[in-house]
């Protein structure tokens, strides 16, 4: 496979395992926003029977059910290319089940503690309350133009951050990482995680641009019609909560 150096390569990991919640939309959104800069973008789908390329600029992990989540963890733990790409500074954006397997440990459907990939300083246990299902709204802690981050959360486990990881938002509505955490997501180096589905980048255009800036140095888009449409969607979602 040959790709010119100027092309941005977005690697969607295991859409057949972690594709339950429409999170593959994040790849569609990132690719299109790269294209709006007149730079070519390529989405590489890596299915569970395929090898992960080490040459990605951005790696995406989505949400999924418990069985496939363990399987995805098994596969990634045996993928030297994934670890190599992270070492080289590639950006990783992981949602929900993807977030959980990047941490130190998580809990599966049978309540068994599973070891994670240890990429992010986070531990996931059974959530301290009912399954978190519903709108998630948070005040952004990232240096982006968007003050509020919004998504839909749906998880039965809760995550505690420690060490070098920082949350990406302070929760205003919904649960986020856990009932007593009052924050959502994690940022550690070039790895960014969240519990927001929707998919996350559909509403949060500035988060998408932040990922592209971190990964390949693209400046945030301004005034394009897609961003304006997303602004309308975001404000409609925020208004629906008030």
């Amino acid at each position: 496979m040959t790709v010119s150096d100027s092309s941005v390569r977005i690697v969607l990991l295991y859409p057949d395992l972690l594709g339950t919640y429409g999170d593959s939309g994040n790849a569609t959104i990132l690719a299109k926003r790269v294209a709006l800069h007149d730079i070519s973008a390529e989405v590489v789908l890596v299915h569970s029977d395929e090898t992960v390329t080490a040459e990605g600029d951005i790696y995406l992990l989505g949400g999924g059910e418990d069985g496939p989540q363990n399987y995805a963890r098994d596969l990634l733990s045996k993928e030297p290319n994934f670890a190599r790409a992270i070492d080289k500074g590639a950006l990783v954006f992981a949602v929900c089940a993807g977030f959980q397997i990047l941490g130190d440990s998580y809990v599966d459907a049978r309540g068994e503690i599973q070891s994670g990939l240890g990429v992010v300083d986070a531990k996931t246990r059974r959530i301290k309350g009912d399954r978190a299902v519903g709108e998630l709204l948070g005040e952004s802690l990232l240096p982006i133009s968007q003050r509020l981050l919004s998504g839909f959360e749906n998880h039965g486990s809760g995550t505690t951050l420690f060490g070098r990881s920082q949350p990406i938002s302070r929760t205003l509505r919904g649960v986020g990482n856990d009932y007593d955490a009052h924050v959502d997501g994690a940022l550690q180096g070039n790895v960014l995680c969240t519990y927001m589905h929707g998919p996350a980048l559909a509403r949060n255009y500035a988060l998408a641009d932040y990922l592209l800036e971190k990964a390949v140095g693209l400046k945030p888009l301004e005034g394009d019609w897609l961003t304006e449409l997303q602004m309308k969607l975001l404000s409609e979602r925020i208004e629906s909560l008030s």
Binding site: G19, D23, G25, T28, F152, G198, P199, A202
Partner: peptide, 9 residues
């Protein structure tokens, strides 16, 4: 269903 994420599929 309250979650519309599936439209991206």
């Amino acid at each position: 269903g309250k979650d519309t994420s599936w439209i991206w599929d």
